[in-house]
Design a protein around this nucleic acid. Structure first.
Lengths: 244, 244
DNA sequence: TATTATTGTACCAAATTGAGACAATAATAT
DNA sequence: ATATTATTGTCTCAATTTGGTACAATAATA
């Protein structure tokens, strides 16, 4: 039996969702040697935001985030980490939410729960770019990949959230099997290195990186991949560990 | 002008505080070669809990935590870090809150906001044990230091919160100037080593630790401290960096 | 003056890291 | 075929960091 999730804009209070609590997610993908994140644009507003949402009254916080990611990416087994809670009063900008609702044809009353102050739990997710067709939700025109270095201006404190997510990702880089979640099943050593370079935003010495990765014992080597280019073909690798 | 903070138990709804949102803090102190944390016991209940609280409607989340710590420790400039948000449904145990309120002479109605589900933002704090006289709040008999290895049984998921705080502290140990916050202004190298050993719960090689700490460039050496014992007197040190 | 417990420094070996050399190789050009 | 080109995988060597011991210095006591 599937639980019905309430329609956001029609509600006049937070019934169905916990009031004052939201989440925002920084969904990282990797393609074309660059790190990208998902950004949504609301209907007719030129307002850009991170994919976020609310927590059902009988729903685990983490599950709420997974539900939101499933809706936007179609993926249900996603690598997910909390990174920070943004809880300052000054992030409360009811006029922005109001504009979004109005652009969608709703006339929220002054005490509409969405116009209240929210504390947002920030997450980051790592997903395989190739597996995703981003889908907008009811309030948004689009949900698309943006290069990290050419993000549009984001509403509220979402730029800080991206920054915090990136910092946390970098901090966790050595302990987490990042490549496994951002790359397809099989990949070359160069692919993996480019992921690390994109995240750290600095070049990495090739042979030392190779030594480190092979030495970790996490990689399984497969057949070579012939690209058709005029040079030695690289091996393909996959991760031997279990997906988190 | 000081803002009035509402009286918790008298409220019949969350006016004054954000509903559904709480924080819990793991307050670390160091004394007698051991790591300790503050634990509160509620009146007449034998229920033990971490110092926690709620967020005023017009209050920053971080400020709410600082306010709570100020009330219980008297300190206002405390080293504080978020570590995790506990947001599972199963942490909702209204009967425990009810028991606490009843033991204090309140008869909460069924829909009392404190009996609702809460998401809790966990923090850890590092403070100088010597500067603190723990103070209980209105609902609790005591607020006292407990050795980490002999904690009483804690309510709800507070044991997990302690665990998470400890993990986070360990993870941050190298980047954060932990000693500065847990030790008095001046301390010996042995004091500092004992702090690290208490946090990591494993012995550290003395001379390598000394080399690492002196090499960090963060320590300033002062006069020797004569203990009256029959051996060479150690230097006193202090940290040269700014707090936090 | 010898003894004891600690502390500060020096030193050596092992492990890790940074940087480059070089052979192997998959295509293309000759 | 053979030379050329770009890239990959492996090695090697030096520099740095880390783990561990040796030892002298020293503040009290016996």
């Amino acid at each position: 039996m599937k639980k019905r999730t309430p329609n956001l804009a029609e509600q006049t209070d937070g019934h169905g969702y916990l009031v004052h609590i939201a989440y925002d997610s920084v969904v990282f993908g990797f393609s074309g040697e660059k790190l990208k994140i998902l950004v949504m644009e609301y209907h007719n507003t030129r307002l850009f935001a991170l994919p976020g949402g609310f927590v059902g009254i009988h729903e685990n916080l983490n599950d709420a985030v997974r539900r939101g990611l499933k809706e936007r990416t179609g993926l249900s087994d996603i690598y997910l980490e909390q990174c920070y809670v943004f809880g300052d009063v000054k992030r409360h900008k009811p006029e922005i939410l109001k504009a979004i609702l109005q652009a969608n044809g709703y006339k929220p009353k002054k005490d509409h729960w969405l116009l209240d102050r929210f504390i947002s739990v920030a997450y980051y997710a790592l997903i395989n770019y190739e597996l995703v067709t981003p889908r907008p939700d009811a309030l948004s025109d689009s949900c698309e990949w943006y290069d990290l270095d050419v993000l549009p201006e984001l509403i509220l404190d979402h730029a800080s959230i991206v920054q915090k997510a990136l910092e946390t990702l970098r901090k966790n880089l050595d302990e987490q099997i990042v490549g496994m979640n951002l790359l397809p099943e099989k990949f070359t050593m160069k692919d993996l290195q480019q992921v690390y370079e994109a995240i750290l935003d600095e070049p990495i010495h090739r042979t030392n990186f190779q030594r480190k990765m092979l030495g970790s014992g996490l990689l399984v080597r497969h057949a070579k991949q012939y690209s058709g280019k005029a040079h030695k073909a690289p091996y393909l690798y996959s991760f031997s560990g279990k997906k988190k």
